[in-house]
Write a protein that binds this DNA or RNA. Structure first.
Lengths: 212, 212
DNA sequence: GTCTATAATCGGATAGAC
DNA sequence: GTCTATCCGATTATAGAC
C-alpha cells in the first residue's frame, strides 16, 4: 500500500529492530549477572552501544525491559518441557527431557541465570507463572509418572522431587558455570566434556529410578 | 585485671556484639535476595533497626560486611563436606554427605542463596576459594571415588559430574525454595515433606551409581 | 527517530554533634 | 559509642533540541 506520507516505511524499521535486539541481549547479560535490582540501565545501554537515555525510547522502563526478557525465558522453558511428552516410554521420555534441558542450559545459560535470580528475589514477576502454568505442568506430569510407577516401569518415588532433581542438575550447568569453570582449570567445559556430563546425568538418573 | 581507666569494660561490649550480629543477619537476608550490588545498606540497616549511617561504625564498608558474610558460608560449606570423609564405605559416605548438604540447605537457605548469587555475578569474592580450596577438595574426593570404581563398588562415572549433581540437587532446596513453595500450594515444605525429599535424593542417587 | 542536557531521587560513605 | 545531618556520585527517567 502506497500512501501520501513523505517517507513511507514499515511500522518497525530494520534499524529499530536491530537496536531493540541489541538492548534486549545486553539486558539479558546484565540481568543475569547482577539481578533485576543490581542491573543498571546505564550498563545495559553501554553494552548495547546506545546512549543511556535512548534505552527509554525502545523500552519505557527498566521493568518493561525485564519483563520482555523474562517472557521469552518462560517460553523457552516450556518448549524444552514439551520434549517430555513426545514419548510414551519412561526411559525415552526422561532421556529426551533431560537432554533438552541440558541443551537449553548450554545454549542459553543467561536465561537460566535470570530465572534463578528471579526466584532468589522472591519471584515477583514470574510468581503467577509458577503458581499456574508451572504448577499445572508438574501436576499433569506427576500423573504420568504415577502411572509408570503403578505399571512397575519405574521405582516408586514422589514425582515432584524427581523433577526438582532434573531441574536442579541441568540448570546447575548454566547457573554455576563460573564455578564449574574454576574447577576445570579456569576453562569452560569443552563440548566433549559437556556431552559426557549430559550422558552421565541421563545415565545416573535413569538408573536411579529403574526397578531392580 | 583492674586498671586505672575510668570505666573499664570489655573490648567488645555486649551491646556492640548484639548490633553487629543484627546487622550481619539482616545483611545475609538482603544479600540473599538482591545480590551484592542490588542490596542497599539502607535496607540492611532498616531491617536491623539501626540508623543507616551507623552501619559504617560496625562494618567499614558494604563490601567488608559482604566479605564477613561470605567467609562464614565457606566455613559452613566445608564443615558439611567433611561428612563425606567419615566413612570408608561409598554408600555410607555418600548417604552422610547428601544428608549433611540437605540439612545445611534446610538450616541455612540464605547461605546457599548468597553463594549462588556470588557465582552468578562471576564469583569475584570467592573465586580464590573455588580455585584453591574447593578445587583441592574435589580433586582428592575424586581420587577416592575412582578407587571405589576400580574396586567395583560403584558404577564407572566421572566423579566431578557426580558431585555437581549432589551440589545442584541439595542446594536447589535452598536456592529455589520460593519456587518449590509456589508448587506446593503456596506453603513451604513441611518437615515431613523435606525428610521425604531428602530420603528420595539419597535413594535415587545411590541407586543411580550402584552396580547392577 | 535519535541525541544532549538535566531533573529528581537514591546510593554509599563521612563529619561532627551529643 | 551512637546519633543527625549531609556530601557527592550514581541511578532512573524525562524534556526538548536536532
Amino acid at each position: 500500500m502506497t500512501d501520501t506520507a513523505p517517507h513511507p516505511r514499515p511500522a518497525r524499521s530494520a534499524g529499530r529492530e536491530l537496536k531493540e535486539k541489541g538492548l534486549f541481549e545486553a539486558a539479558r547479560a546484565v540481568f543475569a549477572e547482577e539481578g533485576f535490582k543490581g542491573a543498571t540501565t546505564a550498563e545495559i545501554a553501554r553494552r548495547a552501544g546506545v546512549p543511556k537515555a535512548n534505552l527509554h525510547y525502545y523500552f519505557p522502563t527498566k521493568e518493561a525491559l525485564y519483563r520482555a526478557v523474562t517472557e521469552e525465558i518462560l517460553t523457552d522453558w516450556l518448549a524444552a518441557a514439551s520434549s517430555f511428552d513426545e514419548k510414551d516410554d519412561p526411559k525415552e521420555a526422561i532421556t529426551a527431557y533431560i537432554g533438552a534441558k541440558m541443551d537449553l542450559a548450554r545454549a542459553d545459560p543467561l536465561g537460566s541465570r535470570i530465572w534463578a535470580s528471579e526466584i532468589l528475589r522472591g519471584a515477583p514477576v514470574i510468581k503467577d507463572f509458577l503458581e499456574t502454568t508451572l504448577a499445572e505442568w508438574i501436576a499433569s506430569r506427576e500423573a504420568i509418572m504415577r502411572r509408570w510407577i503403578e505399571a512397575g516401569k519405574i521405582r516408586p518415588l514422589e514425582p515432584r522431587y524427581f523433577f526438582y532433581m532434573i531441574w536442579a542438575t541441568t540448570q546447575h550447568y548454566a547457573d554455576f558455570e563460573d564455578q564449574i569453570r574454576a574447577l576445570n582449570g579456569g576453562v569452560p567445559l569443552s563440548d566433549e566434556q559437556f556431552q559426557k556430563a549430559k550422558a552421565q546425568v541421563v545415565d545416573t538418573i535413569l538408573h536411579g529410578i529403574t526397578p531392580l
